[in-house]
């Protein structure tokens, strides 16, 4: 029944019916479904709170991020420092708020790059097959097997100064980081999407659409992709976490933001050696990463359930 409804739904979409209204109601329905998805709503709310906090937070909470005060180093949460201080006595709340901007932006942007590149490569490869598939998959293999560290060092060496000159230090580094993380994370997504495509393109409803002369692009976008979206959403939400952590390891190659600019991953890394003496230092950035990833995941779940008419909402 469920599969049929999808098939017939898509059939309906290709028949000369008043198309706008059909898709309008589809979107409205999806939105309604999303709104009824309690966890998705929770995720959206939590993410909104985090975004507002990191965007507006530094304007409200005006403690500087780099005020060194050795007298107050490694202190736990207190009134003066709500989240405590690090080993230079810098205020952690200010650093977590400020760092969140970079981490969130990097995480989401890199995830989007990885997901979109991966989906396009995987879709073309999985639908096209033959030579296209071979070429694309060998490129994927190449990227999978490239040793990342030397590659990153090479990229720093080749592009850092150029991008800095072109776009200014901050924007340049941001683009570089996002491109590097996204550019090295799309391969699993491509493989996953391709695998799904190989299977789905042989399913009856796609056959049916093909038989009806639906254009390949439309087949892919309307019929195959929505059914292959599950692993993409999971990979997407996991990639946000990976990107946030990866950003911190990039700064250890001299590729990330300058060392005096805090990011969540970096705060977490700096905190690790003092974990047994000053756990608060690690707990807050760790929680921030966790909440972000969790809420993005719930939004993803909600989106998938909302876009897929088969799904029953629990």
């Amino acid at each position: 029944m469920a599969a049929n409804s999808t098939a017939s739904g898509s059939l309906a979409g290709t028949l000369p019916l008043p198309r706008h209204r059909a898709s309008d109601s589809l979107w409205v329905e999806a939105l309604l479904r999303f709104r009824r998805h309690r966890l998705a709503m929770f995720g959206a709310l939590a993410l909104a709170v985090i975004v507002v906090a990191v965007v507006a937070g530094p304007f409200v909470y005006r403690v500087p991020i780099n005020e060194i005060d050795f007298k107050a180093k490694l202190q736990g949460p207190s009134l003066a420092h709500p989240l405590g201080t690090d080993d230079l006595g810098q205020d952690l709340l200010a650093r977590v708020l400020y760092g969140g901007r970079i981490s969130l932006a990097v995480g989401v942007a890199a995830m989007l790059i990885a997901i979109s590149v991966g989906t396009v490569v995987g879709a073309v490869s999985g639908y096209g097959s033959g030579t296209t598939d071979h070429v694309l998959m060998r490129i994927t293999d190449l990227f999978l097997s490239l040793p990342q560290l030397p590659l990153l060092l090479l990229i720093v060496c080749l592009f850092r100064d150029m991008l800095k000159k072109l776009l200014g230090p901050e924007a340049g580094i941001f683009i570089l980081i996002v491109a590097v993380i996204g550019g090295l994370r799309w391969m699993p997504v491509a493989r996953l999407v391709r695998a799904q495509f190989l299977s789905i393109r042989e399913k009856e409803f796609v056959e049916a659409a093909r038989g009806l002369g639906v254009s390949p692009l439309r087949q892919v976008i309307r019929h195959i992709l929505p059914n292959a979206v599950g692993p993409v959403i999971v990979a997407g939400s996991l990639d946000v976490a990976t990107a946030i952590i990866a950003e911190s390891s990039l700064s250890f190659l001299g590729l990330g933001f300058p060392p005096d600019i805090p990011t969540w991953g970096r705060i977490l890394f700096d905190a690790k050696d003092n974990l047994d003496f000053a756990p608060h230092w690690a707990i807050f950035p760790g929680t921030a990463i966790f909440l972000t990833v969790l809420s993005i995941n719930y939004i993803g779940d909600g989106l998938r359930d909302a876009l897929d008419p088969r799904k029953v909402i629990g």
Partner: peptide, 15 residues
């Protein structure tokens, strides 16, 4: 070079 004490040292001088 990248090394935690050196980065702290840099921050102290910078400030």
């Amino acid at each position: 070079s990248i090394n935690a004490p050196r980065q702290k040292n840099q921050q102290i001088v910078k400030q």
